[in-house]
Computed example of a mutant assay.
Amino acid sequence: MTAIQMAEVTKRYGGEPAVVDLDLTVDDGIVYGFLGPNGAGKSTTIDMLMNYTRPSTGSITVLGLDAQEDASRIHARTGILPDRFGVYRTLTGREHVKYVLDANDAIGDPEAVLDRVGLGDAIDQRAGGYSKGMEQRLGLAMAIAGEPELLVLDEPFSGLDPYGVRLVREVVEEERDRGATVFFSSHVLDQVERVCDQVGLLADGHLIAEGTPTELRDIAGVQTRLRIETTDHDPAVDGIRDLDGVTDVTYQGGELVVTCPRTAGNEILRQLEDAGVGIQSFDIDHGTTEDAFVELADARAD
């Protein structure tokens, strides 16, 4: 089943487009990362999915239901962590989660849910005393309460320390393994590729590329850098320079750096060994989704 389907969706505010001709398909049971800088149109897209705002043109279905006509049924099957999430200061963490369970007529254990996000010790503390990071974790707990079919997370890494960021990634993976579809937006591109099955890159309201993180790097022409520490003071590199796709070879301070296609690493190491070059260690930098986004966005601007 398709969890999310958007066809030729455009949203304008006062005549200015925030999202333009967006065609988007998110398959059931995957983690889809919707990535782009602040102001790209990510939150507007999520608002349209949840019927907080309506598209100027185009159609949207969520979980096989019309996003406008069946909004209440979609909400009952969806957990959402909105951007700029705010707590009810007088309610405890337990009461926040219980409220979501009751509102969706769902079964769940608030203690177990809050334990998953690291708030077990603060379950009966009033949320007005939570830190920003604790508030974000509470929002995540409310989103996953009741085991929804779809999770929609808008900037879920906001306000979190490194431990909290890792915890979000772990929860997202667990929810996917449970069978849920996870759709989340972020501008923290280096974190997203660690957990996403599919990625869509959004710039100025336009979907400029879509695919797996590896596919996006290939589409953008992001090259691999192979860093090799050698025992030689002057390693033989002429044969390496002649290999298909190798664009640069430098040697400085005992480190040989080869810029090459992602699949060329084994051949480069083999040639060095055949040439008698002593290899102490090597590291492969395949580039990031952020590198791909920059390349694709720059190409579009040109």
Rank of each mutant, 00 (worst) to 15 (best):
E170P: 05
S158K: 06
T181V: 08
F184D: 08
V168A: 09
D190W: 00
P156A: 13
E193V: 02
R166S: 15
V192E: 00
E170T: 15
D161N: 03
L160I: 07
R178M: 05
S158N: 15
F184Y: 13
R176Q: 15
E173S: 14
V168W: 11
G179D: 08
P156H: 08
Q198G: 01
F183D: 06
P162E: 10
V171C: 04
S185L: 05
E173D: 13
R194N: 09
V188G: 00
V192R: 00
V172S: 07
Y163K: 13
F184G: 11
R169Y: 04
D197M: 03
E155W: 11
D154R: 10
S186C: 10
S185N: 14
Q191F: 02
S186L: 10
G179W: 10
E170V: 08
R178A: 14
L160Q: 04
D190L: 10
H187P: 10
V195K: 00
R166Q: 13
G159D: 05
L189T: 07
L167A: 11
E174A: 15
V171S: 06
E170C: 10
S158T: 15
V195Q: 03
E193M: 00
V171N: 09
R166I: 00
E173C: 03
V192T: 12
E170H: 09
L153N: 08
R194F: 01
E193W: 01
C196E: 00
T181I: 12
V172A: 06
D161T: 03
V172R: 06
R176I: 08
V182A: 11
R166L: 11
E174Q: 15
Q198D: 11
A180V: 05
D197G: 05
P156C: 12
D197H: 06
F183E: 05
T181S: 13
S186E: 10
E155D: 10
A180P: 02
E193D: 01
V188N: 15
R176V: 07
G179F: 11
V188D: 07
E174C: 01
G164Y: 06
D154S: 09
E175H: 03
F183M: 02
H187W: 02
D154P: 06
Y163P: 00
E175Y: 06
L167E: 13
L189K: 05
R166M: 12
G164H: 09
D177G: 01
P162M: 10
V171E: 13
V172W: 00
Q191D: 15
D190C: 00
V192A: 15
R169A: 06
V192I: 07
H187C: 05
R176W: 05
V188Q: 14
Y163I: 12
V165I: 15
D190V: 14
D161E: 02
E155N: 12
R166E: 14
E173I: 13
F157E: 08
V168C: 11
F183H: 04
S158M: 07
L160H: 05
D197S: 01
V172H: 03
D190R: 12
G179N: 09
V188K: 04
L160D: 09
V195C: 02
F183Q: 07
C196Y: 02
Y163T: 07
T181C: 08
R194P: 00
R169H: 10
Y163N: 12
V165Y: 05
R178V: 09
Q198H: 13
V168F: 06
